[in-house]
Write a protein that binds this DNA or RNA. Structure first.
Length: 718
DNA sequence: GATCCTCGAGTTCG
DNA sequence: CTCGAGGATC
């Protein structure tokens, strides 16, 4: 009988081996029952010897209990997305740019791989041991979903022969079609809402807070990229979604071609989608794309295109990046899926700015994972250009994006005498005469108190990005407005639990498609109830303490979005000061130009706005705090700093973040408005330009001093 | 005055 | 996500 520690080691090695056979190589050597027996024996031994449990043991996949939420985590380097190609011509153009960029006459070596329709993930290993898994998020900051990623058996907790130190691998987590169908069958049996498609199911699963549940769902993963974080300081950006390391021969130990990297990933025990191919020249790439257009349907997972990358890392390095994408990769998207259906009629909706947009009401049709019933037609012009008429059969399309669009009417099926759509001249809700400025396409309802506009304004005000009043959604807003319990934002703050609890809701039809809609459901109206009412009033109360910018954004001033609201709130400090600012003062704020400034001024000039501000203040909302004279919390306000060259003690991103936190603006290029240029090692043209323009120049030490004592702006000779 | 980039606005379905 | 407008820069 071997010592328990030895037996445990042996079991772990065997289990890892069989997990790889099953999940990575797709070639199991033993039955599921035999595998389960191994796991059971290991689990029993570990229970008897808890001191021998290690984090990378195969039994430790489902660790924690349900969590309260996920932490956010910043990516070491941004996970960028790829430019898209839709046609052979787009691919030719891509190839043209690559060859021009490399000054190459001959064919370029590319690698083409299937683009899995799942969720991007970055997984970090330290000396081959799993550390964490982070979702792509917005590319800069993602969510740390390690507890869930650990449960995915296709992702090894320990790599084979992995390089020492930290290794980040990037790939795609997905749910195989079969697992998706099984899941939906279960949910149907439990009368739970079904997932629309495998991608949504995978996304929902990965964000589930209970690792035990995640473990049962059968998520899988494929990897296509690795980064080693040596030499981070001098890297500006890094491709996440499908990209590969652009590092030159700096000795990061990663292969010099993408093809070899893919092989290395497999050798480390990571699953790699096996149908990738190295293609000499763009013609071979085109053939690869064409060959998968239909065959992809037979794969056990969903794909949404082909990723094409330049194979050689040195060539990638030379090509570099545009501001958004790598120049050495593109994503070929399969032609959008299409369906035809009947256009029942065209409604018009009124947005919060008064914009009146035509909405196609369609015979429901299932297309690429969801049932489509509505599609926006954007504006009158669009309808006329495509000659779309109510009653037509139309061709509907849903591409890589989610939003369906009407491509064209099927003219051959058009019944005779079909009338063209007439844009109404009056607001369908409040009857005001619609207006359209000479040079614009959209018609607007000019009535600021139009009930439709009020509804949309309230939804915007309560929205997550504005005042963040959870629970105040479309249905409730609708009720409050139609009962005239709420006439403006301030009324929200006078709602009482008693008043709300007695509200009654019909079983709601999905959209207010018109009052005469025949779909009348007779279900018992549901009372809103004390519990919901209390929760809502609490939410509303909490929103009183929001930062000023949320309120400014929530007001819905034209041309003032989230960023604009932040700029204005920071610059003026209080609502009073903002409301009193002249157009000139407004324009002095960075990123506020004449159009926005005029719009803000116009908003506060209206007497209703003045009254509204008074009522909001009286309701106890946070109206901001005055910007302190002189040294405020943003001592670098109004300064524009340009960073150039390499820094030693911190990364460019860190430096940028800290400067912005202090109120400075960090620009990419030197102009006469630049307040200071920080020149690191090997600074190039920006430094020369700074000298030309007489802009103050500092070095890394200057920057560190500035970050330490920001009130002490460097002056004189630098 | 042209060009590049960012932000705002509208939007479907679960 | 995509379009178009607004802002900043050259």
């Amino acid at each position: 009988m071997p010592a328990p520690a030895d037996r445990i080691d042996a079991l772990r090695a065997r289990i890892r081996h069989h997990e790889e056979r099953y999940y990575v190589l797709d070639d199991p050597e033993i039955s599921d029952a035999e595998y389960d027996a191994l796991v059971r024996e290991l689990r029993d031994l570990e229970t008897a010897h808890p001191d021998l449990i290690t984090q990378d043991s195969p039994t430790q996949r489902v660790s924690g209990r349900p969590a309260d939420g996920f932490d956010t985590a910043q990516h070491l380097r941004p996970m960028l997305s790829l430019d898209n190609a839709y046609t052979d011509e787009d691919l030719d153009a891509f190839d043209e740019r690559v060859r021009k960029g490399l000054g190459s006459e001959g064919p370029i070596a590319y690698v083409a791989e299937l683009k899995i329709d799942g969720l991007s993930i970055a997984v970090t290993y330290e000396d081959g041991v799993f550390q964490r898994g982070v979702t792509r998020g917005d590319g800069v900051v993602g969510e740390d979903v390690s507890s869930n990623v650990r449960t995915i058996q296709a992702i090894p907790l320990r790599l084979k022969q992995a390089p020492a130190g930290r290794l980040e691998v990037r790939g795609e987590i997905y749910l195989p079609r079969q697992a998706f169908e099984r899941l939906n069958e279960e949910r149907e049996a439990e009368a739970e809402p079904l997932f629309a498609n495998p991608r949504n199911a995978a996304a929902g699963t990965l964000r589930n807070l209970d690792p035990a549940l995640v473990s049962r769902r059968g998520l899988r993963a494929f990897f296509y990229h690795a980064v080693r974080d040596e030499d981070l300081g001098s890297r500006q950006s890094e491709v996440g979604n499908d990209g590969a390391a652009p590092d030159p021969a700096t000795g990061d130990g990663l292969p010099a071609t993408h093809a070899d990297l893919m092989r290395a990933l497999g050798a480390w025990g990571l699953p790699v989608e096996k149908h990738w191919a190295r293609c000499e020249g763009i013609e071979a790439v085109k053939a690869f794309c064409a060959s998968w257009a239909d065959t992809r349907q037979q794969l056990p997972f969903d794909t949404d295109g082909i990723v094409i990358k330049v194979d050689r890392r040195d060539e990638r390095e030379r090509l570099g990046f545009t501001s958004k994408f790598p120049r050495w990769a593109t994503a070929y998207k399969f032609p959008a899926q299409q369906a035809t259906t009947r256009l029942i009629r065209i409604d018009v909706q009124v947005g919060r700015t008064g914009a009146v947009t035509p909405l196609a009401v369609l015979e429901p049709v299932f297309l690429a994972g969801s049932t489509i019933q509505y599609a926006t037609l954007h504006n009158e012009e669009e309808i006329r250009r495509k000659d779309i008429r109510p009653g037509d059969d139309v061709l509907l399309e849903k591409g890589g994006d989610v939003i369906p669009k009407i491509v064209k009417p099927i003219l051959s099926r058009r019944p005779g005498g079909l009338a063209a759509f007439e844009m109404p001249t009056q607001c369908p809700v409040c009857d005001s005469a619609l207006e359209r400025p000479e040079d614009e396409v959209v018609w607007r309802c000019p009535n600021p108190s139009c009930p439709a506009r009020l509804r949309r304004s309230l939804e915007h005000f309560a929205g997550r990005r504005a005042m963040n009043i959870d629970g105040l959604g479309e249905a409730l807003v609708d009720k409050l407005v139609s009962l005239e319990l709420v006439r403006d934002f301030a009324d929200l703050y006078h709602l009482t639990i008693e008043g709300l609890a007695d509200l009654r809701f019909e079983a709601q039809p999905r959209k207010k498609a018109g009052d005469d809609d025949a779909l009348v459901r007779t279900l018992t109206p549901r009372r809103f109830g004390e519990k919901s009412a209390t929760a809502l009033v609490t939410q509303i109360d909490n929103s009183r303490r929001n930062d000023l910018w949320r309120l400014v954004f929530g007001l819905g001033i034209r041309h003032v979005g989230e960023r604009g609201a932040q700029a204005l709130a920071t610059a003026f400090g209080t609502m009073d000061v903002l409301a009193g600012a002249t157009v000139e003062q407004l324009q002095a704020v960075p990123d506020i130009g004449p159009v926005v400034a005029a719009s803000v001024r116009r908003f506060f000039d209206a007497s209703e706005s003045r009254r509204l501000m008074d009522r909001l203040a009286a309701a106890g909302l946070n109206m901001g705090t005055p910007v302190p004279e002189g040294q405020g919390p943003k001592p670098l306000e109004g300064r524009t700093v340009v960073l150039t060259g390499a820094l030693d003690s911190l990364t460019r991103d860190d430096a940028t973040e800290r400067l912005i936190a202090l109120g400075a603006k960090v620009a990419g290029s030197v102009s006469k408005k630049t307040s200071l240029v920080i020149a690191g090692d090997d600074a190039g043209s920006k430094l020369a330009k700074a000298r030309d323009l007489g802009v103050p120049i500092g070095d890394e030490a200057t920057l560190l001093r500035l970050l330490a004592t920001p009130t002490d702006w460097p002056s004189g000779s630098l």
